[in-house]
Amino acid sequence: MLSDEDFKAVFGMTRSAFANLPLWKQQNLKKEKGLF
């Protein structure tokens, strides 16, 4: 599990902003970052 700081560094957004994205968009971002 990423820390909040690492999460923001990897995804360029906060966890709450990420959580507001549609599920497909979350999955695409995870795949792009190799976290899926």
Rank of each mutant, 00 (worst) to 15 (best):
G12S: 03
K25H: 11
M13N: 00
M1F: 14
A19I: 09
N28T: 13
N20K: 15
K8W: 14
L35Q: 11
K8V: 14
L23W: 13
E5F: 07
D6K: 10
S16K: 13
E5A: 11
L23G: 08
K25N: 06
Q27H: 13
F18P: 00
K33D: 03
L21D: 01
N20V: 09
W24C: 10
K33H: 12
D4L: 03
M13Q: 01
E5I: 09
S16M: 13
F36W: 14
K8M: 15
Q26G: 00
L21M: 06
L29Y: 05
F36D: 13
L2W: 11
G12L: 03
L29P: 01
S3Y: 04
K31L: 10
S16G: 09
T14E: 07
F7S: 00
D6L: 10
E5P: 05
A9K: 14
L29M: 09
P22C: 02
W24N: 06
M1Y: 14
K33S: 11
G34M: 10
L2A: 05
S16F: 12
Q27K: 10
F18H: 00
W24A: 06
F7N: 00
E32Y: 08
K25M: 14
F36L: 14
N28P: 01
K31W: 13
S3P: 04
E32A: 11
K25E: 15
L21T: 02
A9L: 12
W24Q: 06
L2F: 10
E5R: 07
G12M: 03
A17P: 00
L21P: 01
N20S: 14
S16I: 12
Q27E: 14
E32I: 11
M1H: 13
F7T: 01
A19N: 13
W24D: 07
S3K: 06
A19T: 07
V10D: 02
N28L: 15
W24F: 05
F36R: 09
K33A: 13
F7V: 01
K31D: 08
A17D: 13
L29S: 01
M13K: 01
Q27S: 10
A19H: 12
K8T: 09
E5L: 10
E5Q: 08
F7L: 01
K25F: 10
L21E: 03
K31Y: 12
R15D: 01
G12E: 04
N28M: 15
A9F: 11
Q26H: 01
Q26F: 02
P22M: 03
G12K: 04
S16T: 12
L2G: 05
K25P: 01
A9N: 12
G12A: 03
A19W: 08
K31N: 10
L29W: 04
W24P: 04
T14L: 04
M1Q: 12
A17Q: 14
K33I: 11
K8H: 12
M13L: 06
D4S: 05
K33R: 09
F11E: 00
K8E: 15
D4G: 04
R15C: 07
V10K: 09
K30Q: 13
E5N: 09
D4N: 05
N20H: 11
D4R: 03
A17W: 04
L21W: 02
M13I: 07
V10Q: 07
A9C: 14
L2P: 06
M1N: 12
Q27V: 14
F7E: 00
M13T: 02
K33N: 09
P22K: 02
F11Y: 11
S16W: 12
M13R: 01
K8I: 14
A17L: 05
A19M: 14
R15K: 13
A17K: 06
V10F: 12
A19R: 12
L29T: 02
K31Q: 10
Q26P: 00
K30C: 15
F11P: 00
N20A: 15
Q27N: 14
E32H: 07
S3V: 04
A9D: 08
F7G: 00
L35K: 07
W24L: 06
F36N: 11
K25V: 13
G12Q: 05
N20D: 12
K30G: 07
A9Y: 10
L2M: 12
A19F: 14
A17N: 05
D6Y: 09
N28K: 15
K33E: 03
K8Q: 13
M13V: 05
F11L: 04
V10L: 15
K33G: 05
F7I: 03
D4F: 04
K33C: 07
M13G: 00
D6H: 09
F36Y: 11
S3M: 05
E5D: 11
P22V: 02
S16Y: 11
F36P: 09
K31A: 13
E5H: 08
E5K: 09
F7W: 07
L29G: 01
V10A: 07
W24T: 05
N20F: 06
W24E: 09
L23K: 10
L2I: 10
F7A: 01
G34N: 09
S16E: 15
F7P: 00
L23A: 09
M13A: 01
N28G: 08
E5T: 07
W24M: 05
N20G: 09
L2E: 07
